[in-house]
Write a protein that binds this DNA or RNA. Structure first.
Lengths: 141, 141
DNA sequence: TTCTTTAAGGAGAATGATTCTTATTTAGTA
DNA sequence: TACTAAATAAGAATCATTCTCCTTAAAGAA
């Protein structure tokens, strides 16, 4: 289901950010692609409708969206940054053969981890979030 | 406790690899630094004793060590690669304020995840490894 | 011990990803 | 409608990693 432009405008303005066409289409691209895209993936997608968007703008807007918790960065072991449009807590399936990363949500797993970490102490460390990296290989890659 | 050079030589030769001074000192650097270093961190460390080692050589050796399961790449959300000298299954504490990454081992957590994932099905996906990203902030950063 | 072979390393160029700088444009408010 | 500060465009600069080609050396055979 495609996210409406109105919904996106709302998300952006609620963060006290100017609602610019670039920000709208970058966020829309991330939702539409829905595959933890790189900045280049996003730029290519957007240039179908906005041929003149600058690479620097894309990086700049991505940084702004991350800082304002509208998107998240995804951890990978490559020298390239990826982005996630889902900000609610979830986990990832990583393929060790290719760059595919899939979302994984399961309330049971969340509760299980929540209970475990409630019991644990981490002196000098303030816990914020738990993300499970589920590593393996996809048949389709 | 510092790993002996003999131990390192043994690890390298057991993988059928030539034992070169560069490979020994790169692996030693990773063990000594023990902080999920970048290629640049490793290069700087090594140049104290091997001033002429080439950057390309460091990247090449790191790639070889990863391929042979002597070290592992660490997932981060930056455009820079980090390496881990501990190949046994473990988890990581990530600081959201700085680049610090600390190891976290707990058999209880491992068993808990093992049991959970034993029950789950992932059609089209062959599970290999589970790593937990424990995100938060360190007081000391 | 010496020689040979193939793999590894050195040096630096090339490539790709990201950041920075400056001038122009524009979103939002008055 | 006008104004202002923020955002964007364009391209240069920087940084991280890979590639190419020539030289060196680890390891094994003789």
């Amino acid at each position: 289901m495609k996210t409406s432009i109105e919904h996106i405008r709302d998300k952006i303005s609620k963060k006290g950010l100017k609602v610019t066409p670039q920000r709208i289409c970058i966020l829309e691209a991330i939702y539409d692609l829905d595959n933890h895209p790189t900045a280049d993936n996003i730029t290519e997608y957007i240039r179908e409708t906005h041929p003149n968007i600058a690479t620097g703008t894309v990086y700049k807007v991505l940084e702004t969206l991350v800082e304002n918790n509208l998107i998240k960065k995804v951890k990978t072991d490559r020298d390239i940054m990826r982005y996630d449009g889902i900000i609610e807590a979830h986990h990832h399936l990583y393929c060790s053969e290719c760059d595919l990363i899939e979302d994984y949500m399961d309330h049971e797993l969340d509760e299980l981890l929540k209970d475990y970490f409630k019991k644990k102490k981490f002196p000098g460390f303030k816990l914020e979030d738990i993300v499970v990296q589920i590593r393996g290989t996809f048949d389709k890659c």
